[in-house]
Design a protein around this nucleic acid. Structure first.
Lengths: 135, 135
DNA sequence: CGATAATCTACTAAAACTATAGGGTAAAAG
DNA sequence: CTTTTACCCTATAGTTTTAGTAGATTATCG
């Protein structure tokens, strides 16, 4: 299941991608237009900023804005920041690899075999989509 | 993230697929060999039986066994039974469709667009893998 | 029949995660 | 110096996951 965090984050990003000239947009405006709990969105935008996807400006006329152009923002990055590892199992994760405790031999593991394919196919989709493709 | 339920279920299925002549295998044996909590596995095997993937036999010499041949067991079915919907969002689910409350227009939704592709690619993998392919 | 071996059922509970709310701080603008 | 906005920390209700406990039920075998 996709978490609401990711869902809301994606919606916010596309909202900001549509804004002319990368003007800062207030949290409240995004929250209202996209039907998102404002407080929740606040923390989501914060993590997007901390991970280099958004910039922010405080005070009057402030808000959040996209740092890169939409076509430069790959979904692989967005998903990793919001949802975490793309792999469904740590033992097939590229960026968050971890060995399974229970599994004696990865090469023989059926779960490993299947999830490797699932990861690759998902990665394929995310690599072929930028923020611009979702508008 | 793949739930342990699904992970264990898959391991149990492949274990049973390797058994000669579809002989019943006891829960305890599978649990021990695959490092799975026996009681947890018990409930997993039960749902696999209720969904027509396994058969069971009580009493001495009893246990669980595959009903179909491994190459007849599609991963699409297994995943739906164990993990639930393949889609990451209800609004792109084939078997469990549900409209999003917040989203006014699905056709315009960026999340919808992306998750549709992810679902299709995952479906592609699951449809092209049977239990036999994981051995 | 009666003992044994197994699945089946239901209830409970700890732990982790998700989504959200509250309240206060810091910086920028006017 | 006041307003406006992002920033930060904490708490909490709710749900899901991952089991554990206790016993009922059914089949087999001697």
């Amino acid at each position: 299941m996709l978490s609401k965090k990711t869902k809301y984050g994606l919606k916010a990003l596309t909202y900001l991608a549509k804004v002319e000239g990368r003007q800062p947009v207030q949290i409240a405006e995004i929250a209202k237009c996209e039907n998102i709990s404002q407080k929740f969105l606040e923390s989501i935008l914060l993590t997007l900023r901390r991970n280099g996807l958004l910039g922010s400006k405080k005070g009057k006329g402030g808000g959040y804005y996209l740092i890169k152009e939409p076509h430069e923002v790959q979904m692989t990055t967005v998903m990793r920041v919001l949802e975490g590892p793309i792999a469904m199992v740590p033992c097939v994760s590229l960026n968050f690899y971890e060995k399974c405790e229970d599994c004696p031999d990865e090469g023989e593991c059926s779960v490993h075999k299947l999830m490797l394919q699932v990861r690759d196919s998902a990665l394929d989709v995310y690599r072929n989509n930028t923020l611009a493709d979702l508008l």
